[in-house]
Amino acid sequence: MSLPWELLILLSFKACLAHGPVFTQEPSDIVFPLSSDDKQVFINCKAKGNPPPHYWKVDGREIKPELESHYSFVEGNLLINNPHVINHGGVYQCIATNTFGTVVSREAKVQFASRKARNTVSVREGQAVVLLCGPPPHYGEIKYSWVFNGQRGFLQQDARRFISQRTGNLYIAKVEPSDQGNYTCAVRNMMTNTSVLSSPTPVVLRRDVMGEYEPKIEVRFPETLHVSKGSSVKLECFALGPVPSISWRRADGNPLPGKIKINHSSGVLEIPYFRPEDAGVYECVAQNSRGRNAARGQLMFYDVEHLHWTHTLKDTQMAIDTNLQWECKAIGKPRPTFRWLKNGQLLTSQQGRHYVDSGTLSISRITLSDAGMYQCVAENDLGAVYASAELKVV
């Protein structure tokens, strides 16, 4: 008995609406401060599909909230309640799957920062001191600040005090009696807008007084630094001893670029929008009443290009016994490599009727078993990008 044509049209319409999963938001690396009052970690992942997708993995193991009380799913996102620094750190990946196939998100590393007690630092008046921040593992842009004696505002930098935005360490060129107290390093992740505070470091003054000496450059930029086109580079230079003055020049005889920004009090030289003509040898000179010292380093132009797609995949419908060739193209510096996934599983270079050659996937004599979700992954040392498409077989 044949079906009425109205029912056939309705079934065809519903079949067109059904499709494989597609990510609209993927998880990102995160460092969570265990000192935070909020004892929950929320890892975002959203995917659309009909029927709806989702589950999660950590370090390759499937997460099952019904068996692990710390984990729960909130509209497909992952919530970790009362996380533990050892038990819940790892590499998380969101898996979107339905009856049409599976796609995997990019990997996200989750780590937790805990606080350890700091030893007391004993210094003489007039002596220099370096307080180590010891930041936790982190990703993305980080801003370092220091808090003195639990005060509301952050410690202000001047010619005598310097905070390195490369290491987070606090440098005091010449200690005064008013510097005695507790120092706490504050680390803010600008990407996740989360902060973590170190344990306080007590600084106490000894009775004897330190004599004066020539400047010792304690904070210096690398001897060789590769800078990519269009980026902003900051060179740090700070000296210990009776408060020295800091000046900058190009050691190769060329004038400093007109666009540079110099913060004389904190010893930072910034070159925005780096270009080939900005490359060269830069020198920092520290001078006080006892003498002078200099540090230099070479900035080298590095032509880097962010990884991005120039040709990606599209959902495809193929008939049985036909041949398919999919091609994805991505450019970037360093040059990317490619791999292919079917329903989240790696396709080898030659697997039956499937043949992978860099950014090209060929499938000969298509069968119903070839239907599913396919992903092309382009990656280099700077990251990875994912492209996905569904293959329907009729």
Rank of each mutant, 00 (worst) to 15 (best):
V196D: 09
C45V: 11
N182R: 06
S358D: 07
L132I: 15
K261F: 13
G126T: 03
N293L: 10
S122A: 13
P4Y: 14
T102C: 07
V104R: 04
S69T: 14
L205I: 08
K116L: 12
G89P: 02
G20N: 00
V91H: 01
I271Q: 08
E141M: 05
G241Y: 01
G126E: 10
F73N: 01
N343S: 09
D179E: 10
P272I: 01
R106G: 06
R365D: 10
V209C: 05
K57L: 15
S364G: 06
R124P: 02
R106S: 02
I246G: 13
V58P: 00
V281E: 01
K229C: 06
H70G: 04
A295D: 11
F154G: 10
S36A: 13
L197M: 12
D303C: 05
L78G: 04
M318H: 02
S35N: 14
S358Y: 08
D278G: 06
Q298Y: 06
R118K: 09
E277R: 00
D59I: 10
L324I: 13
H84R: 09
G383R: 08
E107H: 05
A251V: 08
F274R: 02
Q180G: 10
G280P: 11
S105R: 00
Q317H: 04
L131D: 05
L17D: 08
A239E: 04
L155N: 05
R118P: 02
F112M: 05
R250Y: 11
E327H: 09
N189S: 11
R353V: 04
Y183T: 03
E66S: 11
A389G: 09
T192R: 05
I217G: 00
L131H: 08
N189G: 06
N44W: 08
N189F: 05
S145N: 13
T24Q: 09
E305S: 12
N288V: 11
Y282K: 00
R152M: 14
L7T: 12
Y183M: 07
K342T: 03
R339S: 14
S289V: 09
G134A: 11
Q127L: 04
H88I: 04
E327L: 10
F42G: 01
R160H: 06
T184A: 02
F221R: 00
Q350V: 02
K333A: 14
A384K: 12
A113T: 02
I30T: 14
V103S: 02
P65N: 08
A159E: 12
K392L: 15
L341Q: 03
A319T: 12
T367E: 11
E390I: 06
P177G: 10
K314G: 15
H306L: 05
P255V: 02
P272V: 04
N323P: 03
F274H: 01
Q298V: 12
Q287H: 04
R207V: 06
T310S: 14
Y374R: 02
L7D: 14
G267R: 03
C328H: 02
K46Q: 15
T102Q: 09
T24G: 08
K109M: 14
Q25E: 14
A159L: 13
R106L: 06
V227Y: 00
T367G: 11
L240K: 00
C376G: 06
Q345I: 04
P215Q: 03
T99S: 14
A173S: 15
F148T: 11
V123M: 07
